[in-house]
Amino acid sequence: MIIGGGWLGLPLGHFLHTNGHDVLVTKTSKKGCDDLAKGGLHTLHLELGTSLSTQSENHLRDFQPDVIVGCFPPGLRSDTPSRYVENWRQVSELAVMHDVGKIIMVSTSGVYPSIAEDMVETRQIGGKNLDEKTQLLLSAEQQVIKSQVPYTILRCSGLIGPNRHPARFAKRLKSISDQAPANMVHLDDVIAVIEFVLTSGDNEIYNVTTPETVSKYQFYQRATKHYHEPIALPAPSHTQDKRIVATKLIAAGFKFKYSHIFNALDAIGTM
């Protein structure tokens, strides 16, 4: 069961379906469900923060998911960012209620502090000085951990891929550092990681990021050259920042399709 049939959840659903899995994908509207059904996917009308209808509850009970994959964004820029924690509480309760064997949480590397250090999964994140965003993201992860359902939490760095060209981000950036790493990962690799952890990595947290990267300024220089619309970059700043490290995931046996960030950029092309 994939909760959130959007930019990540929809191609993930098609990929898993093509590879022999029985997949149920949620949408927040009946029209969204009808559109997905035309593509051959099982669908479920589910809007987190509200109770399931009797019809949806029966559908979910009949489907009996072995795994729930949560692919919905934190919505940190929304008026109610705290809903993210409540949404993951609801997902965890659904998993317990329907005797689900595993929860896969697509989280974010934004949970780590902005300190110029390598960020590994064993790093302790805590203390009195946590900002509101970090507290919220950690609290959401804790909903999954406390559920006592086997889990894998994937802390993904910046997502790029079809219809999410990084050059679009460059338009909004007031400064771009030539000393901070470009922590990014391609959609294809995120989907592959989710398939990889379906049957492995219980009660684990993994960073999901392209292993070899460059500075943000180098990254956006190349990205804007690929893009069909000319974009002028601001002069580079020299602020250092955190580097997300995927060593643990690689040691577990996962092989990235795009080992270098430039390979990932080239795969997107001028979309």
Rank of each mutant, 00 (worst) to 15 (best):
L12C: 10
P73V: 00
I125G: 04
D35K: 05
L130W: 15
R77D: 15
L12R: 04
K30S: 11
I145A: 11
L44Q: 06
R168C: 04
T134F: 13
V100C: 07
P113R: 02
L10C: 03
N58H: 13
A192N: 10
V214Y: 03
D131Y: 13
K133G: 01
D131M: 03
L16C: 10
S175P: 06
S82V: 05
A223Q: 11
K146N: 15
T134C: 01
F256D: 07
E141W: 03
I268V: 14
G110M: 02
K225W: 00
Y227D: 11
I261L: 08
T152I: 03
M271P: 00
H59I: 02
I3M: 03
L41P: 06
N87T: 00
V120N: 10
G32P: 07
L154N: 09
G70Q: 07
P74V: 00
V96N: 12
V23N: 08
K216A: 07
D202S: 10
Q135G: 10
H45T: 07
W7A: 00
F169K: 10
D178A: 09
S51L: 11
M184I: 08
L8R: 02
H186Q: 08
I231C: 06
T43Q: 04
T134Y: 14
T80N: 12
L46K: 04
I115C: 02
V69N: 06
S78F: 13
K31T: 13
T199C: 06
Q142T: 10
V67M: 05
N263E: 15
D241L: 01
I103G: 09
K27N: 14
P230K: 08
Y258R: 02
H45M: 07
V149F: 01
E204R: 08
G39M: 10
T122Q: 12
N207E: 03
V149D: 09
F196V: 02
D34M: 01
R77V: 05
